[in-house]
Structure formats: C-alpha cells, structure tokens
Deep mutational scan, measured.
Amino acid sequence: MEVRTIKVFTTVDNINLHTQVVDMSMTYGQQFGPTYLDGADVTKIKPHNSHEGKTFYVLPNDDTLRVEAFEYYHTTDPSFLGRYMSALNHTKKWKYPQVNGLTSIKWADNNCYLATALLTLQQIELKFNPPALQDAYYRARAGEAANFCALILAYCNKTVGELGDVRETMSYLFQHANLDSCKRVLNVVCKTCGQQQTTLKGVEAVMYMGTLSYEQFKKGVQIPCTCGKQATKYLVQQESPFVMMSAPPAQYELKHGTFTCASEYTGNYQCGHYKHITSKETLYCIDGALLTKSSEYKGPITDVFYKENSYTTTIK
C-alpha cells in the first residue's frame, strides 16, 4: 500500500517557510505537534488534498525554529505562539472599519479597549522592536488589523473576551517599542525636605499616572512627601515624541487643539466601556464603527496623549 502524501510549508514567522512532505494517514499533531492554519487549530486533523502548498504555523520545537521565533517575536515564552494563534482565530472574524481616516474595530468580545489602543497607536510616533509587531502594525494602518490585535493580546497575556485596560495595554506595548531616546527629568520640591531631581528613561519617561493635564504637570502637581507634608512635583525636561497622561476616570474637559487623542471610560472596574476622542479640525468621538463630532467635550476621561518633541522648564 502506497503512502499518500502532500507537500506543505511549516513556519513560526510566515517569513521562513520549511518544506514538509506530510503523510495523509496521520494527523498534523502526530507529525508536527500543535499546528495552526489561519489561526485555526488543526492539530487533530489529517492532511487533505486542499492543504497542498498551504502554510501551517507550528510551535518552535527545534533550534532553527526557536531562533526564527525569537528573532521575529522577541520572546522565548513557549506558550506565546499558541496564544497568538488562538487569538487570531477570533480577531480574523472582527470587522476593521476605516473611521475618520483611522483603522478602528467594530465592537465584539469586549474589544473596546483594543480599538482605543489601536486608534491611539496610529496617532503617536512609535516604532516597535519585534519585527512581528512592526509588520502587523503597518498592515493594521492599511486596514488589516487582525494579526496586530492578536499579537497585542498575546504580548499582554490576554484572551479574547476578557476586559482590558488601555493604560495597561499601552504599557505592555511600550515595553516592546523603541523608547531608548526618551528621557524625563522631574523635580520634587518640599518646604521641609528641599528639592530632589529624578531622571527617568524609556517607558517611565512617557507615562504618568495622577493627572490628565500635561500643562498642569509642567506647572506642578501636589504629591505627598515622605515627611508627610505636601510637596510639588513638576516637569523639568521632556525628550520624547509623545507623552501619555493618565488618571482614574473623572469628568474632564478636553479643549480642541490642546491634545492629540484621549480615552474615555464609562462604567466601573468590573464592567465598563471605552471610547476614543481625537482632536482634528474639530473633536471626534470614535466608538467602534461609530463616529460623532463636537466642538467641545466633557466626560469621564482616563488617558490623554500629547505630541511632544523637546521641553525644558522655565521655572527657576
């Protein structure tokens, strides 16, 4: 009895394709271990004539594949690729409408935090270190965002349907971005203890939790000093293409032309909904596939993004 075979390709990165001759009487799992086709788990399936010449994702289970996976995804987590594939199996079914010149995501599976993050990423200057993220990001900007969303979920250790947080998501993504040249110098002034300067680099240099107003941050924000008295913390120097200011959701007025974009969060910790506000020729609110415009805006804002380049204080 002759062994019926077909020729397929296996890959971990969709760049390096490895030619395989597979036995049609055995499952993919018996031949390769966990195997995925377009995100779908085909591990328990036997090869079919229609699979001839198709590319299958496999887990990096030998040295060659491990090197290829690390170079593309910059992670050695053995569960990463499987999590990416199972997320992709959902995100490829989502709709990605162009809204006001940006790629958004039609609401499904509690994905409003991903839509808000995706919209924000198209408006701030950011370059990702893992080629996987950078490639998928370019495709997302062009309207094909399924891979990018699935990668975000995998890097953030999230599953489809789980509630997510924009600030946490951005923080994970910033860790995989090139923020080497970003720098922030802060000064804390206390009447009792004097003053202390701190220099922050990388992710810490672009994120701040405690106030939404970048102007206020430049002037000074009140913080408790270690001595128990009130101290003032203010920005001395900022070198970065953008800054992200966050605070627990509270009524906040966004003035046209003073910011790049913002995240609105309605609801409580267990259950809520994100919308995205962007400042173009007027203010726009993007909620999944829905767009509304207004000249002014007041609502429960939790993150505001500002364009920056270089700032030095005039406070002496």
Rank of each mutant, 00 (worst) to 15 (best):
E2N: 14
V3E: 14
R4M: 11
R4H: 15
T5L: 11
I6Q: 08
I6W: 04
K7G: 11
T10Q: 05
T10N: 06
V12I: 11
V12C: 10
V12S: 07
D13L: 01
D13V: 04
N14C: 09
N16Y: 01
L17P: 00
L17A: 12
H18R: 12
T19C: 10
T19S: 13
T19Y: 10
Q20H: 15
Q20T: 11
V21Y: 14
V21R: 12
D23C: 13
D23W: 11
M24E: 09
M24I: 14
M24T: 11
S25P: 05
S25I: 11
S25V: 11
S25G: 12
M26G: 08
M26F: 09
M26I: 13
M26N: 14
T27M: 12
G29I: 03
Q30F: 04
Q31I: 14
F32P: 03
F32M: 15
G33Y: 08
P34F: 13
P34M: 15
Y36A: 04
A40L: 14
A40S: 12
D41M: 07
T43Y: 10
I45R: 14
P47S: 06
P47A: 10
H48F: 13
N49Y: 13
S50Q: 14
S50W: 10
G53L: 11
G53N: 02
K54E: 11
K54N: 14
K54D: 13
K54L: 15
K54R: 14
T55F: 08
T55K: 10
T55L: 04
T55C: 10
Y57Q: 08
Y57V: 13
V58Q: 08
V58F: 00
P60Q: 10
N61Q: 14
N61Y: 15
N61A: 12
N61S: 13
N61P: 01
N61V: 09
D62E: 10
D62C: 08
D62Q: 06
R66L: 12
V67D: 12
E68C: 01
E68D: 07
Y73V: 02
H74M: 12
H74F: 10
H74S: 07
H74E: 08
T75S: 14
P78H: 13
S79A: 14
F80T: 01
F80L: 05
L81G: 01
R83Q: 03
M85V: 08
S86F: 13
S86N: 14
S86V: 13
S86G: 12
A87W: 03
L88N: 01
N89Q: 14
H90E: 05
H90A: 14
T91L: 04
K92P: 03
K92T: 07
K92Y: 01
K92I: 11
K93M: 01
K93I: 15
K93R: 13
K93D: 11
W94K: 08
K95R: 10
K95N: 15
P97F: 05
P97G: 09
Q98L: 15
Q98R: 14
V99G: 10
V99W: 11
N100D: 10
N100M: 14
L102S: 06
L102M: 14
T103M: 05
S104R: 05
I105V: 11
I105L: 09
K106A: 15
K106F: 00
K106W: 12
W107Y: 07
A108L: 06
D109S: 04
D109W: 01
N110C: 10
N110V: 02
N110W: 00
Y113W: 15
L114N: 08
A115N: 04
A115I: 07
T116N: 10
L119S: 06
L119N: 01
T120E: 06
L121A: 04
I124T: 08
I124K: 03
I124W: 09
E125V: 05
E125G: 13
L126W: 06
K127Y: 04
K127E: 14
F128C: 02
F128G: 02
P130Q: 05
P130H: 03
P131V: 01
P131R: 05
L133Y: 04
Q134K: 11
Q134S: 09
Q134L: 07
Q134N: 08
D135S: 10
D135I: 08
A136N: 07
Y137E: 02
Y138M: 15
Y138K: 15
R139G: 09
A140G: 06
A140F: 09
R141K: 15
A142Q: 14
A142W: 07
E144P: 01
A145P: 11
A146P: 02
A146R: 05
N147F: 04
F148G: 04
C149R: 05
L151K: 04
I152R: 06
I152V: 13
L153G: 06
A154C: 10
A154G: 05
Y155F: 08
N157F: 11
N157M: 06
K158V: 03
K158M: 02
T159K: 15
G161C: 05
L163N: 05
G164D: 04
G164I: 04
D165V: 03
D165W: 01
V166R: 02
V166H: 10
R167I: 02
R167T: 02
E168N: 06
T169Q: 09
M170P: 04
Y172T: 14
L173Y: 06
F174H: 07
H176M: 11
A177R: 07
N178I: 01
N178A: 11
S181T: 13
C182Y: 08
K183T: 11
K183F: 07
K183Y: 08
R184A: 09
V185E: 07
V185M: 07
V185S: 02
V188N: 05
T192P: 03
T192A: 11
C193W: 04
Q195H: 10
Q196A: 08
Q196V: 09
Q197W: 06
T198A: 10
T199N: 08
T199E: 09
L200P: 09
G202H: 08
V203G: 07
E204I: 00
A205T: 01
V206S: 05
V206T: 06
M207R: 07
M207C: 12
G210A: 02
G210R: 09
T211S: 07
L212C: 07
S213K: 03
S213L: 01
Y214F: 07
Y214N: 01
Y214G: 01
E215F: 06
E215Y: 06
E215W: 05
F217D: 02
K218N: 02
K218M: 02
K218I: 04
K219P: 01
G220W: 03
G220F: 02
V221K: 03
Q222C: 09
Q222S: 11
I223H: 10
I223V: 15
I223A: 14
P224Y: 11
P224N: 13
C225V: 03
C225L: 02
C227Y: 04
G228F: 07
G228K: 07
G228Q: 11
K229P: 00
K229V: 06
A231S: 03
T232P: 01
K233W: 05
Q237T: 09
Q238D: 04
Q238M: 04
Q238A: 05
E239A: 05
P241S: 10
F242L: 01
M245V: 09
M245E: 04
M245F: 14
S246T: 04
S246Q: 00
S246I: 05
A247F: 04
P248S: 05
Q251C: 07
Y252T: 13
L254K: 02
L254Q: 12
L254E: 07
L254S: 01
L254P: 02
K255M: 09
K255S: 04
H256S: 03
H256P: 14
F259Q: 00
F259A: 03
F259T: 01
F259Y: 02
T260D: 00
T260R: 03
A262T: 03
S263M: 02
T266F: 01
G267F: 04
Y269R: 10
Y269L: 13
C271K: 13
C271W: 10
C271G: 08
G272R: 00
G272D: 08
G272C: 03
Y274Q: 05
Y274D: 06
K275M: 00
K275E: 03
K275T: 04
H276T: 07
H276P: 01
I277C: 01
I277Y: 01
I277D: 05
T278W: 01
S279N: 05
E281T: 00
T282D: 08
T282N: 05
L283A: 03
Y284N: 01
C285Q: 00
I286W: 00
D287P: 06
D287V: 04
L290W: 10
L290T: 13
L290K: 13
L290S: 15
L291T: 14
L291Q: 10
L291K: 06
K293P: 02
K293E: 12
S294V: 15
S294F: 15
S295R: 10
E296N: 14
E296M: 13
K298L: 06
K298H: 13
K298P: 06
G299W: 05
P300Q: 14
I301M: 01
T302R: 03
D303Y: 02
V304G: 04
F305I: 12
F305H: 04
Y306V: 00
Y306I: 03
Y306H: 04
K307P: 15
K307C: 10
E308I: 11
S310D: 11
S310W: 06
Y311Q: 04
Y311A: 05
T312M: 15
